[in-house]
Write a protein that binds this DNA or RNA. Sequence first.
DNA 1: CAAAAGACTATAGACTTAGTAGACTTTATT
DNA 2: AATAAAGTCTACTAAGTCTATAGTCTTTTG
Lengths: 145, 145
Amino acid sequence: MLSKKTKYAIKALVALGKNVGNPPMQIVKLAEQEMIPRKFLEQILLDMRNAGYLYSKKGAGGGYSLNKDAADIFLADILRITDGPIAMVPCASLKFYRKCDECHDEVTCGIRKTFIDVRNATLKVLAQTSIADVIGRETDDLLVE
Amino acid sequence: MLSKKTKYAIKALVALGKNVGNPPMQIVKLAEQEMIPRKFLEQILLDMRNAGYLYSKKGAGGGYSLNKDAADIFLADILRITDGPIAMVPCASLKFYRKCDECHDEVTCGIRKTFIDVRNATLKVLAQTSIADVIGRETDDLLVE
DNA sequence: CAAAAGACTATAGACTTAGTAGACTTTATT
DNA sequence: AATAAAGTCTACTAAGTCTATAGTCTTTTG
């Protein structure tokens, strides 16, 4: 399951993506608008900022804005910051590889092979879906009608 | 991340899959062989049994054996028993659907749409990979050489 | 009847997640 | 220069989940 942290992160990025062109958005406003606990959001935005996805400005008139094009921020990268590995077992992880405690012979492990397939399938979606795509999909239905 | 419970469940099923044709296997033996805490394994096997995947026999000479063909036991079903939903968000789950706390308008939610894609991609692998497949893949490398 | 095995329920401890608190720093405005 | 508006950073707490263990009960075999 996706953590709330990750969901909040995506929602915040989506909101900031829609805010492009306007002055930066304050944490408080973002928190209210997206119904995210303020201090929790604060931490999440910090992480996103430290990872280079957000630009922040202190002081009066400050706030947060995207530091990259929304089309260049991919869900896979966000998930890795907030939730860590995308693979379901550490030994199948691309970016957070770790030997499984229970595993004796990794080379012949049938479980591992299967979960590498799962990881690849998941990544095919998440590494290609950007915040811009998520925003685009929100209005899909409206466009069709 | 897959829980230990799920990993143990898969390992146990694989071991029992290899044991087909022999007398049923006792919990203690299975636990030792697969290095799984005995009482924990006990619970897991019970779950699998109650879900119809295992047959158990009490008393002297008793133990556990598969109740279905290893080719008819799919990882997706096992994961659902041990870890619950396969989707990363409840609102994208096929078997454990639940509205997301944070979600206002599910119909136009771009996040949901993306994670339905992820779920489908994951399921495409997990719902088609059986315990027999996992066993088969263990020896893949040996066959190639 | 005794021993072997599984069935079932409860509980404890460790870890993770979600959320809160507070003190500090930078910037803009007056 | 003073003040207020904002973000930064670290620590902490509460609740929940996961892993594992313990103990008692039931069934089956010899």
